[in-house]
Simulated scan of single mutants.
Amino acid sequence: MSYLNLPLLHVFHLVAERGSFQAAANELDLPRSSVSKKIRQLEEHVGQPLLQRTTRQLRLTDVGRNLLLETSNLQSVLTNLNGVVDDAHASPKGRVKISASILMGQGYLVPAMKKLRKAYPDIELELSLDDRNVDLLAEKVDIAIRIGQLPDSSLIARKISEKCWGWFASEEYLTERGEPQSPHELINHDCLVFGKFTFWPFQDKHGHTETIEVTPAIKTDNSRVLVDMACEGLGITMIDPKFIAKELDSGQLTPVLTDWAHPETSPINLVCMGERTRAVEAVWQFLLEDWGE
């Protein structure tokens, strides 16, 4: 590494320690654009992004964290930085955290893990499966599967599928309680509800849509539990049929109200930050290609 790069490291340390480009720029008495340019120059030298930026937050990538640690003693900068750069150009390795809801993780991620591990054995994978809305930057998520339009323009998104809904129950429940012949008959049935989704829209074959407010017999914030309860004969639920393929194939669940359709769909996107380490980029490209097949 050339001594000319030491000023870039000084700027990088200030940005990392102050938590923003503007704070570092104020301390250095430089325009914010100059600080941003110096960070890009250092990233080009290392060959990977050091910081992940959104409109609201800033955090270090794994490579950036390693660089900050290895260059904390500036007397050892020359030796340690060369090691960081060599590691960055070797086979992709490091931690990659992937976030998804429980059923989407089971449906999309788990089947891909064996091939992904075989392709990149040096990458440490962390799956975070949770049905709540996760802040990707705050929880250090690298890649996520998300439903619907994305409010944060700093995220990169690739559509991998489309979410739809249907209504399902077990044969045990339908034998005991009878099968509803119209949405209005749900008032006489036990409805299993995910979160706050108590308004169920129905569209008939003529295109007329009517929304029914159901009274939950049981409400849950866990999508896996929702499916399990339906399989146990506890009631009727509204869910994406893609995520209960095994239960439908085995006969544990069966469709109801099939003369009606849910009128809405939402895109299912694979998302990540614009700045990616080689490990994150490798996993990102692998998942897109695997699901594209």
Score class of each variant (00 low, 15 high):
L186H: 02
F168I: 05
N188V: 00
P241W: 06
S223T: 15
T175S: 11
K163G: 09
G207P: 15
G233W: 03
E247R: 00
A230C: 12
L186Y: 04
E185D: 07
A230S: 12
K205D: 14
L226H: 14
H208C: 05
K219N: 10
P183T: 05
L253R: 06
I187Y: 14
T237C: 13
D228F: 00
S161K: 10
E162C: 13
F202I: 02
L257S: 07
G166I: 13
K246C: 03
T198F: 04
V256S: 06
F202E: 02
G233F: 03
I236N: 07
H206V: 05
K219L: 01
G233S: 04
P241V: 07
N222F: 00
K242N: 13
V193R: 14
R224K: 11
F199A: 15
P183N: 08
R177A: 10
A169S: 09
A230K: 05
K242Q: 15
G251M: 11
E176V: 02
G235I: 01
L234G: 05
H208D: 13
H206I: 00
E171I: 01
G233M: 03
P216D: 03
D204C: 12
M229R: 12
E185M: 14
G166Q: 14
I187L: 14
I160Q: 11
Q252L: 14
C191P: 08
I239G: 05
E210H: 12
H189W: 08
P183Y: 08
I239R: 02
A169K: 02
I236F: 10
E176P: 03
G233T: 01
E247T: 01
C191A: 14
N188E: 08
T254L: 11
G233L: 03
E171M: 02
Q252K: 10
F243Q: 14
E247L: 04
P241H: 03
E176I: 01
K196P: 11
G251V: 02
P183C: 11
W167M: 06
I160C: 05
H206K: 12
Q181Y: 05
D240L: 01
Y173W: 07
C191Q: 10
H208W: 04
G233A: 03
P201R: 00
I187R: 15
R224Q: 15
T175D: 03
I212F: 12
L257V: 03
A230R: 04
K196F: 10
R224M: 04
G166S: 15
D204I: 08
P255F: 08
E213Y: 10
F168L: 09
K242S: 14
T237I: 07
F197H: 15
K163L: 11
F194G: 12
D228R: 04
M229V: 00
F202D: 01
T211L: 04
F243D: 15
G166K: 09
P216E: 02
K219A: 03
T215I: 08
P216G: 02
V256Q: 05
S170M: 04
L186T: 00
F197W: 14
G195Y: 06
F202P: 07
V227Y: 12
D221N: 13
I160V: 14
E247H: 06
M229H: 12
I236S: 08
C164K: 10
V214F: 14
S182G: 03
P201A: 01
T175E: 03
R224D: 10
Y173H: 03
S223G: 08
V227K: 11
D228A: 07
